[in-house]
Simulated scan of single mutants.
Amino acid sequence: MSAPLFHRMSEQDGELQEALMSLGLSRKEASVLSYLLLRGSATAKEIMAELSIHQPQLYDVISSLERKGFLYVQQSKPKVYIAERPSVILERLEREYTKKKSSIISAIVKSSTNELARRNLIWVTRGLDNVVNNSISLIQEAKNELYIEAPPHILRKLVKSIKVACSKGVKTYVLLYPSLEQDLLSELVSAGIVELKTNALGQFYLVVPDAEQSVLMPRMMSLEEGNNAYGYVFKDKLMSLFFIHYFFDAWKSSETAFRKLLRESDYPMSFYSQRFAVWEILKAQEAGLKPKVTVSGYTLKQKTQITLSGFPFNVRVTSDVINFELQDLASGKRYLIGGDNAILEDISAEKIVIELA
């Protein structure tokens, strides 16, 4: 009696079985199907003899493979099991694999959503020192852009961290209230900030790196020197973009104390805040430059991801509207580009890269 085929399969046969298993078949399913693919057809008795599979197990495996469309049964006596064509099997395996992949992704997303619900995305930080320490931590995490609204006595505590961030290429915009002190201005300019504005009233104390997370403190508490203050830390992108919205409202009407003279070497500039991207597009145009932008975001109607590239025009920064138009160089289509809370525009921009033509 010859040795079972399972024990004398060639290396190539073993690779076929492993390949079938990698596409989601069980070891026994892969063993039976690879045997039928190599032989073409076989009876249950032949399969059991060659693969050392007991009858109940074999019928479970055959039922599973038949249900998946990988083999069919010739109704003779005895029944003969025939493998489908390899191309058909491959197509159905891919379909099955894609279905399983979608189920896994769905489960991961659901699990992640539940995890987000369990996590603290906002918490209270008590005492001015703790507010400052949390602010410094966020500034240290900044990689692209940084927005700060603060009074002088707190800004002084942040200057060192701001300087380090600027040295790494982080574009920093500072709104200072209620009044500017000249030595602090010199320190901030030396640190490498892009722009500094002043506002006699101010809205709140705010630190937002990369439009991803933020520290917020009520204005009146930020003006007190004592340690009875408290603030909020938000590990949430939507809330951080919401704060930038109001930060920019005050920014565009505040008095400019310093504006860095941008050079060609400062480009390309990328922004997660559509508002400050629009601000820099406007400043580049006012300086006689010809900015070209690449916009990544999604369409408001279809909610599909899109990337556009072209030259912005009709740039608007008013009390009600902050957007610009763009004719995509690839498609020739014109789009109105808005931000995270876009309603009237065609595109909600998630990232904008500005370069010079």
Rank of each mutant, 00 (worst) to 15 (best):
residue 2 S to D: 12
residue 14 G to W: 08
residue 18 E to P: 07
residue 20 L to S: 09
residue 23 L to N: 10
residue 23 L to R: 15
residue 24 G to N: 05
residue 26 S to C: 11
residue 27 R to E: 08
residue 32 V to S: 00
residue 34 S to W: 05
residue 43 T to E: 05
residue 46 E to W: 03
residue 48 M to C: 05
residue 68 K to P: 05
residue 68 K to L: 04
residue 76 S to M: 13
residue 78 P to C: 08
residue 83 A to I: 04
residue 86 P to H: 08
residue 89 I to E: 04
residue 96 E to G: 07
residue 98 T to V: 14
residue 103 S to M: 10
residue 105 I to D: 11
residue 106 S to I: 02
residue 106 S to C: 06
residue 120 N to I: 15
residue 120 N to D: 13
residue 121 L to C: 03
residue 121 L to F: 12
residue 126 R to W: 11
residue 127 G to E: 08
residue 128 L to M: 13
residue 132 V to G: 04
residue 133 N to C: 07
residue 134 N to I: 06
residue 145 E to P: 06
residue 150 A to M: 10
residue 156 R to H: 05
residue 158 L to E: 09
residue 162 I to W: 13
residue 164 V to R: 01
residue 165 A to K: 07
residue 168 K to Q: 12
residue 169 G to V: 12
residue 170 V to K: 04
residue 176 L to Y: 08
residue 181 E to V: 06
residue 186 S to D: 09
residue 193 I to H: 02
residue 195 E to T: 12
residue 200 A to N: 09
residue 200 A to T: 09
residue 201 L to V: 10
residue 203 Q to S: 15
residue 206 L to D: 04
residue 212 E to L: 01
residue 214 S to N: 10
residue 214 S to F: 08
residue 223 L to F: 03
residue 225 E to K: 13
residue 227 N to E: 12
residue 230 Y to Q: 14
residue 234 F to R: 00
residue 240 S to I: 01
residue 249 D to T: 10
residue 249 D to K: 11
residue 250 A to S: 12
residue 251 W to Y: 11
residue 253 S to G: 05
residue 253 S to D: 06
residue 258 F to L: 12
residue 268 P to K: 12
residue 280 E to G: 00
residue 281 I to H: 01
residue 282 L to W: 11
residue 282 L to M: 11
residue 288 G to S: 10
residue 289 L to D: 08
residue 291 P to V: 12
residue 299 T to N: 02
residue 319 S to E: 15
residue 325 E to K: 00
residue 326 L to C: 02
residue 336 L to Y: 01
residue 348 S to Q: 01
residue 349 A to T: 04
residue 354 I to V: 03
